[in-house]
């Protein structure tokens, strides 16, 4: 199978998955306890007022009709309206997804940039000091929950040392946001040459990204180390050593490339996890991302944002899996042939 056809087959499989996702999203929020009309009607509402709300929101219609309305809305880009912000869910998402994405990318950068070299070196210098350091970081990153490391980081770096900014979102007070192109403040500030905003955005990003990066780095390091150890013991690496190839070529050329398949899978999973699961870090740092938004909506049973969030996370995972599949195909031609 050629690469083009491989990608096309994979892409076709995405569609029914997405349809299934909308069905599950709708059913889940439908089954959740709590009546969205009550939320919308407020504490003083009368039964008649609530019935009117239900009529307005279409909650009195049969379930399949409600699902169809939801699905056709989604196809038109209408995800409903949030009861807490009074805005279309799509507007809220467009404001919040870049915040989450920026934090995710920054922490992935730290996790990969530090985690992969550390894993490789830990494997190469097995049981050396660096291996012990990597083990310590690995255990620490997995064992310490992010809300705790986050709070600790705020306490030490903001409260005591004063080197970190207050945990108040993406920009320091008084700094104007750079004009929006991507929504990622660091990128927008760089593109627009707004150095003040860039400094502020990087400074605000520092602690949350380190907190998340630290927790994500652990599995990456462990995975790279374990796979590297296995590969370094394999025949072709031994042959390379025997042939007298330079160490750098063997380790970073042959061994590392071959250890990337499971690592790519892991990075894909971790990316999805971060996009959906950094709720805690977002709350600790008052980071206005989608995790924070989802929790607020869930507590108030604000149906439209919850549906939007679940759908968004599912789509992110579907796209990541699709991307990972394609990258597999690029990295390992055998997969395409099956």
């Amino acid at each position: 199978m050629g690469l083009g056809r491989y990608v096309a087959t994979r892409a076709l499989l995405v569609l029914p998955t997405l349809l299934g996702v909308t069905l599950i999203t709708f059913t889940l929020t439908y089954l959740l306890p709590g009546n969205p009309a009550l939320v919308k009607a407020g504490p003083l509402a009368t039964p008649e007022h609530i019935r009117e709300m239900e009529r307005q929101m279409g909650l009195d219609r049969p379930v399949p009709v409600q699902y169809w309305r939801y699905l056709s809305g989604v196809l038109r880009g209408d995800f409903g309206e949030s009861a807490t912000t009074g805005r279309p869910v799509l507007t809220d998402f467009l404001q919040r997804v870049p915040a989450t994405l920026e934090l995710t990318l920054a922490s992935m950068l730290i996790a990969i940039g530090v985690g992969i070299p550390l894993g490789v070196l830990a494997a190469v210098r097995r049981d050396g000091p660096l291996d012990h350091v990597s083990r310590l970081l690995g255990v620490g990153g997995v064992a310490m929950p992010t809300f705790w490391t986050g709070l600790l980081a705020v306490y030490v770096f903001f409260y005591h040392l004063g080197v970190a900014p207050p945990p108040l979102g993406r920009l320091s007070p008084g700094v104007t946001a750079p004009s929006a192109l991507t929504g990622l403040y660091t990128v927008d500030a760089l593109l627009g040459g707004s150095w003040r905003a860039l400094g502020s955005a990087l400074h605000q990003l520092m602690l949350p990204a380190l907190t998340l990066g630290f927790s994500v780095m652990a599995p990456v390091t462990r995975m790279v180390r374990a796979t590297m150890l296995e590969i370094l013991e394999s025949d072709y690496v031994k042959a390379a050593w025997a042939a007298g190839l330079p160490r750098r070529t063997i380790v970073y050329g042959d061994a590392l490339r071959n250890c990337m398949i499971p690592v790519i899978t892991l990075i894909g999973v971790v990316f999805g996890f971060l996009m959906a699961g950094n709720v805690v870090v977002e709350i600790v740092f008052a980071w206005p991302g989608i995790g924070n938004y989802a929790v607020t909506s869930l507590l108030t049973k604000d149906a439209a944002p919850i549906q939007g969030f679940v759908l968004f996370v599912a789509v992110v995972y579907v796209l990541i899996n699709f991307t990972v599949d394609v990258v597999y195909g690029l990295v390992d031609p055998r997969i395409r042939l099956r």
Binding site: I110, G113, S172, V175, G199, L202, H203
Partner: peptide
């Protein structure tokens, strides 16, 4: 990721 922003730290943060 970490040290850079501290160097760039905008002064008006505390103002």
């Amino acid at each position: 990721a970490a040290v850079g922003p501290a160097v760039f730290r905008p002064r008006e943060t505390w103002a």
